[in-house]
């Protein structure tokens, strides 16, 4: 007797025009026919809905029909590799970057990167933030030599496109149309809700240096090299206000 193996079942599930395996029957022994489509439909709908939930701004800007068509192609080429659906879609930005149908929306991949980073931040580990008192207790002369930790929920997304302006306008059409410019976005999670912030030139270099374990002084120097007029005051204030600094680690 033919055995329906799961390779055959899976192939038929993901290919809408593939025939239903012939060992699948209804209760009276007849071919299962569209009963198999219930599973086929469940798989496509569940994974597509997961992408719509995970990438709401991309869904709005592509439109429901285009997004669902892209999702259908994506989930067949990149089915989830884990049952943890919070991680599903990590490969979507690169997929959108190279989708020939979207050649006129070159920013769409970066928009998906921003949305994936927001979701990652939401699920990231908690941390005890640096208190104002602890910061004030550091002698000013030692501040430059201090290495702070960063909250695990902090994310940085840089783009050649005005990606935060595009994201904001997608969710709130009363926002102004974005001027064409690069944008760097810091995602901070002061409590449980990730919030994106637009960074000034050089801030992204500064945050990346801190991430890599640089002291405040070294990070400021690297940022000033990249952007001569860079002043770290604003970004440091933002990091404190959003409870994104932890530590200090050690000052040696």
């Amino acid at each position: 007797m033919t055995i329906t193996d799961q390779t055959q079942f899976r192939t038929a599930l993901l290919q809408p025009d593939a025939p239903t395996p012939e060992t699948l029957l209804d209760g009276l022994g007849r071919p299962a026919g569209r009963r198999f489509s219930v599973y086929r439909n469940n798989v496509a709908v569940a994974l597509t809905e997961a992408l719509i939930d995970g990438f709401p701004a991309c869904h709005i800007l592509l439109g429901d029909q285009t997004f669902r068509a892209m999702a259908g192609q994506f989930l067949r080429q990149h089915p989830p590799d884990s049952p943890v659906m919070a991680q599903f879609g990590a490969a979507l930005p690169a997929f959108l970057d190279t989708a020939p149908q979207l050649a006129r929306m070159r920013w769409i991949g970066d928009l998906a990167r921003l949305e994936m980073a927001l979701r990652d931040s939401y699920h990231a580990a908690d941390a005890t933030p640096l208190s104002g008192e602890a910061l004030a207790a550091i002698p000013p002369a030692e501040l430059g030599e201090t290495r702070f930790g960063l909250a695990p929920a902090l994310r940085l997304v840089t783009s050649d496109w005005p990606i935060l302006s595009i994201w904001r306008r997608a969710l709130d059409p009363s926002r102004p149309v974005a001027a064409r410019r690069p944008e760097a976005v810091l995602i901070a999670r002061p409590d449980f809700d990730p919030v994106p912030h637009l960074l000034a030139p050089g801030d992204d270099v500064f945050v990346t240096s801190l991430c890599d374990g640089a002291t405040l002084g070294d990070a400021a120097e690297v940022a000033a090299k990249a952007t001569p007029e860079h002043d770290p005051t604003a970004i440091l204030t933002l990091l404190m206000q959003t409870r994104s600094l932890t530590g200090p680690k050690d000052t040696t």
Binding site: Q6, T7, R10, T23, A46, P79, P83
Partner: peptide, 17 residues
């Protein structure tokens, strides 16, 4: 039920004989 095959998670509860 099964839901993962060959590294791909299909997000549905699939039947077995």
């Amino acid at each position: 039920a099964w839901s993962t095959h060959d590294g791909a998670f299909l997000n549905d509860l699939l039947p077995l004989p």
